[in-house]
C-alpha cells in the first residue's frame, strides 16, 4: 500500500470472494423475486414513478431529433404524399358517411329489440416513456397511472388496434404487457363466424391462435377482435387478421407496437352484475298460481307467528273485453285499472 490511494489494494484472490457472494446474491434474488412477485412489482412501479421525469426528459430531445430527421426525408415526397392523402381522405369520407348511417340503423335495431346497450367506455391518452424490446420480454412504460384512473387489465390501443393491456400501475406510470409477449393471453373472436379462441404471444411479431374448437377452419385475412369473455376487456376491439402458418394460425397485428408513441388506455366501465333478491313471486310454485308451502312450526316453546309471504292474487274484476276494439284501444291498454269504471 505504499503507492498512495490510487494503489489497487485487492488481489486477484480477494476479487473472487465478492464475486461468489454476489453470484449467490443474484440466485437468491431470482428465487425471492419469483416467490414475492408483488413486493418487487411494487418496488418496480415506485422506481418507474421516481424515474418518470428523467425518462420523459431524455425521451423528448431524441424524439424531436427523430421527427426532424424523418421530416427531412419526407420533404422529398410531399407531393406524392399529398396526392395519396387526398385520395385516402375522399375514400374515408365515403366510409364515414356509411358508418354514420349504419350506426343510426344499429341504434334503431337495438331500441326495437330492447337490446342491452354497449357498456360505457372512456379512455386516457398516455405517452410511451419506456419500452423494453429485449429477448423474451416486450413491455412498455406509460406516463399515466392510478392518478389518471388507470387500472390493471385495461386495454391499450393505438389508432389502428390493440397493443396490449395494463398489468402494473404506479401512481404516475403504468406497465403494458404487449400482445406479442410470452405471457400474453387474450380471449378473441374471429369473424365472420365469431369463432372463439385464445391468442397467445410467443415473442414473435405475430401471436398464435390457440384453443380453437376442433374442426374449425379459419380463412386468411379473417378479422380478429377481442371477444370480451370474462369481462376483462371490452368486446370488439380490432386486433389483426388471420395468417395461416403451417398447421397453425397466427395473427398479423394492426397496431404497430414497436413505434407507437401515444396510446389510448380504454377504461371498460362495465357495471357489476348483481342478482336481484329472490322473492316469492320468483318461485315456480307461486308463479304457477299455487300457494307456497308453509314451513312446519318449530319445536321450541314460544314460536313467533309465521310470516306468510304475499301470495300472488289474480285481479278480482276483469273488465269485459269489447268484441271489437275501439279506435283508441292501443292507448287504453296502457292505462292501469283504477277501479273507477
Amino acid at each position: 500500500m505504499g503507492n498512495g490511494n490510487w494503489r489497487i489494494s485487492r488481489s486477484r484472490g480477494r476479487a473472487h470472494l465478492p464475486l461468489i457472494v454476489v453470484g449467490a446474491l443474484a440466485v437468491f434474488v431470482i428465487l425471492f423475486g419469483k416467490a414475492e412477485t408483488a413486493l418487487f412489482n411494487r418496488a418496480r412501479t415506485n422506481v418507474a414513478d421516481w424515474m418518470r421525469p428523467s425518462l420523459t426528459l431524455v425521451r423528448m430531445p431524441i424524439q424531436v431529433a427523430g421527427r426532424w430527421l424523418n421530416s427531412v426525408g419526407d420533404f422529398f415526397f410531399v407531393y406524392q404524399d399529398n396526392m395519396r392523402l387526398k385520395e385516402e381522405n375522399a375514400r374515408l369520407r365515403q366510409w364515414h358517411n356509411k358508418a354514420i348511417v349504419l350506426d343510426e340503423r344499429l341504434k334503431r335495431y337495438q331500441l326495437l329489440l330492447h337490446a342491452v346497450p354497449d357498456p360505457a367506455m372512456s379512455s386516457v391518452v398516455a405517452r410511451v416513456i419506456g419500452r423494453a424490446n429485449h429477448p423474451f420480454l416486450q413491455t412498455m412504460i406509460l406516463d399515466a397511472g392510478r392518478a389518471n384512473a388507470v387500472k390493471p387489465g385495461q386495454a391499450v390501443i393505438d389508432q389502428r388496434g390493440m397493443i396490449g393491456r395494463i398489468y402494473l400501475t404506479g401512481e404516475r406510470t403504468s406497465w403494458v404487457i404487449l400482445l406479442t409477449d410470452l405471457n400474453s393471453r387474450i380471449p378473441v373472436s374471429i369473424e365472420p363466424n365469431t369463432d372463439q379462441a385464445i391468442m397467445t404471444g410467443d415473442n414473435s411479431p405475430m401471436p398464435l391462435i390457440e384453443t380453437l374448437a376442433r374442426g374449425v377452419q379459419l380463412k386468411a385475412d379473417a378479422q380478429v377482435v377481442t371477444s370480451g369473455d370474462g369481462d376483462i376487456l371490452p368486446a370488439g376491439i380490432p386486433i389483426g387478421v388471420i395468417v395461416p402458418y403451417g398447421n397453425t394460425y397466427r395473427v398479423a397485428l394492426f397496431a404497430d407496437q414497436t413505434t407507437a408513441q401515444d396510446v389510448e388506455i380504454v377504461d371498460f366501465k362495465i357495471k357489476p352484475e348483481t342478482q336481484p333478491p329472490v322473492t316469492q313471486q320468483d318461485l315456480p310454485v307461486t308463479a304457477a298460481g299455487l300457494p307456497p308451502v308453509v314451513p312446519p312450526p318449530q319445536r321450541t316453546g314460544v314460536t313467533p307467528p309465521p310470516v306468510l309471504p304475499p301470495v300472488f292474487k289474480a285481479p278480482a274484476q276483469v273488465p269485459p273485453k269489447p268484441d271489437t276494439p275501439p279506435a283508441d284501444a292501443g292507448t287504453d291498454m296502457d292505462v292501469p285499472d283504477t277501479g273507477n269504471q
Binding site: V29, I30, F32, G33, G130, I141
Partner: peptide, 13 residues
Amino acid sequence: DVLSGAPIGLWAA
C-alpha cells in the same frame, strides 16, 4: 431488470 419489466434478477445474474 426493474426498468425492463423482466423478472427480478435475470439480467443481474
